[in-house]
Design a protein around this nucleic acid. Sequence first.
RNA 1: GCCGGUGUGGCGGAAUUGGUAGACGCAGCAGACUCAAAAUCUGCCAUGGGCAACCAUGUGUCGGUUCGACUCCGACCACCGGCACCA
Length: 904
Amino acid sequence: MQERYDHAAIESQAQGEWRSQRAFAVAEDTRRPKYYCLSMFPYPSGRLHMGHVRNYTIGDVISRFMRMRGYNVLQPMGWDAFGLPAENAAMKNHVPPAQWTYENIAYMKQQLQSLGFAIDWDREVATCTPEYYRWNQWFFLRMLEAGIAYKKTGVVNWDPVDQTVLANEQVIDGRGWRTGALVEKREIPMYYLRITQYAQELLDALNELPGWPERVRTMQANWIGRSEGVRFAFPYDLGGGQQLLYVFTTRADTIMGVTFCAVAAEHPLATHAATNNPALAAFIDECKRGTAMEAELAVMEKKGMATGLFVTHPLTGMQVPVWVGNYVLMTYGDGAVMGVPAHDERDFEFAKKYGLEIRQVIDMTGDGRRATGYGQNQDLTVDRGPLPVAFSTAEWQDWYDTKSGVCIHSGKYDGLTYQAAVDAIAADLQAQGLGNKQVQWRLRDWGISRQRYWGCPIPLIHCPACGDVPVPDADLPVKLPEGLVPDGSGNPLNKTPSFYECRCPQCGGLARRETDTMDTFVDSSWYFLRFASANNAQAMSDARADYWMPVDQYIGGIEHAILHLLYSRFWTRAMHDLGLVKVTEPFANLLTQGMVLNDIYSRKGEDGRVDYFSPADVDVQTDAKGLRLSSTLRSDGLPVEWEGMRTMSKSKGNGVDPQQLVERYGADSIRLFMMFKAPPEDSLEWSDDGVEGAARFMRRLWRMVFEHVSGAGDGPGAVAGSEASATQAQAPGPTPQSLTDAQCELRRATHSALVKVTDDLGRRRIFNTAIAAVMELMNSLSRFTDTSPQGRAIVQESLELIVQMLAPIVPHAAHVLWKELGHDDLLLNRAWPQADPAALVQDSIDIVVQVNGKLRGRITVPTGAGDTQVREAALADEQVRKWIDGKPLRKVIVVPGKLVNVVV
RNA sequence: GCCGGUGUGGCGGAAUUGGUAGACGCAGCAGACUCAAAAUCUGCCAUGGGCAACCAUGUGUCGGUUCGACUCCGACCACCGGCACCA
């Protein structure tokens, strides 16, 4: 055995052996339980970043652990290869997106391989290949037939200078990122998927996903946004007979407090009012130019303008003014809301700003418990209780929008509580044919059309005679031409007649092919099914998917908690309903890993520009206690400013290149560091010292095995495979009677570490504590100096178990050390070891004694001592007596095996 | 703004079901080995007081429940993630 830990040699040896044995290629095998472990596939941006390394290391640790536990494990990998960055790179470098993407894939694949992940590369997919995206197209046509896909107009950001549609991220402060031109809203025809049809199912099924983090389920439930309320209409007449302005409200109990209505800028009523009102038309234009992003809408100033039109209150018959409000969304409900300034904070602000009437119709008593003496429905048998809380129109109060008050100033509804009032009002509206109770969803249908080149073509042909005609299945895939280079002025497909010129499949006449491509979320909504049915040129999905699905463990960033995961759930259900797969939920268990952070160092230039520096180029000065004093740039020795820890990004210059780290420290050290530094769901702070520490651990592990193996000499304790297996499960361990105390202690430390590591890797899925347990064991082992044959046998057992416990985390070194310890089988195929119960037995345990909840002493009692015995021992303890000191005992609490609390 | 999350020594974190707060590591300090350095090994390392035994305080802030709270409840503060064309 070599004395030095040579990571490069070890890792190439291990990877070479795995490759030559095709160790990670898996086939369906009904004799073994299957385990599908999937990490979110990467966008091929050029190089792996540390977030990828963390994500895939977590997946690899779980995969390798489950394999040792006897599962048939599938861990595939692919490329989410369509998308905007390739077009941006193309513009910058004048290289076709296809070429850029395929080069990136080749490089990143080699990076992944150097990290030693147990991936079945035979199943690799790239979503930009026709072999993959033809099934996007094929299934889109099935959804079209089933009515799940449909066409309607949608609003996009239009850059008038570049004559192109911009993504939200390409719009900065309302202007195009490249041209600086004011971005306009344009309505264009687009294709949508009816995800709203699945809203109830998607919501209900969240309860059947106990393996998902609670917070992700909550976020999805909020996103779907089911709300029960009343949809009703305000009648109006503009001369052409009665028409209806529909609104939706969850607060029908406040309907008697309506003093205005507000409609979205795109609402037909607004358009109508603007025809003879230039000021209103200008305001509507301003609203339309505004942002479409919810976050910006929420914080912007609420503005409105009266339309001069009035509608009739359906219950009071009063005339209600209609306003246009910039905060009303055309995409939610009917694009109009009723305004109740007294009981809605936003309406209150709006009314104050524009001098609209504020009419209180809900009252609350001082303690919020019961009604006060208003109205006919008052129950006079009930105690009057506190006086009502004063309502003031001067300032908004928290209780104004409470649902626990009662109606006042509301005629026949006076005295009714929330639910009773909603029921009564809904019934009255229904009697008039003007409304009824309804369920409203926040979730909107999924618009999948993108006016971009680097995506999957939507397989439709527009024929002047026949309309929109689907491309026949036999003609799929509609191939994306790969040589085009976008220049920022719109979709190059629109300038490529060889792509868009075609014949109508129905009438044979000249027609134009659709040039929009699909949202890249489409690609990632079913890739997990394709891995399971890899390389099938005849079908999108086959019986192999029924074997592998659902994904047993899905791992990815929390930033995908809503969109990607919801779209994938929807898509899987659609495939299920069209008879293509058996499962309805794609991901049984979900682990959302935290982000990778690093220090940010900057320096402000004289011109106000901020320069960022890599933490690798910065020296940090500390005081005697290690406290950070200042930071200086290594190259010029001048100070730089520390901005704290943030997520790694190119623009902040705080990224770390995995490739350099692998070369310098080896994949095992990087993997160990990432698993040890933080629990998987927390954010992880990068530190070069931490990697150094991981590398130190690897050297120590190597040296411990080396010293043991080389110490074998020719004595009776010589290492051999037969001796090694003798201490394993096949034979019982040495009997406690024959062992010294120190030997007994090391065996107990070894086997209790195994219990802990098994639980952490398996049930808990927390790896930092598993590694800490092994470190503790190694500390015990290095204090163990017994070189007798029996002592050596116990060290051998301990080292073998350490290597096995670490195998999922540092697989290369574990692979080689396993052989050095005398085995010739492959460690990754070895069954996970089981702890020897005999090694865990203890004769006595330590019990903590508290007096009035404060730690005052410790006692040692025999294992299995009764509560009374423990209690007596605690009260007899000298330290404890000092604190009791004759005071009367009030209570003694005995927690078996843990502590005694004496209350005096 | 709305929704979700996080907050423990100088730092990352541990404490799994309400039961010893600070495991394990990083940084730091002291020492051993060495001509020296690297590597390695040993010891110390929450704060205040004390020679020490030990005592008091301490898990973002304030309050509550409990024999006992990092853990449960209420209010607040700070920071982070998502918000539908980035993926």
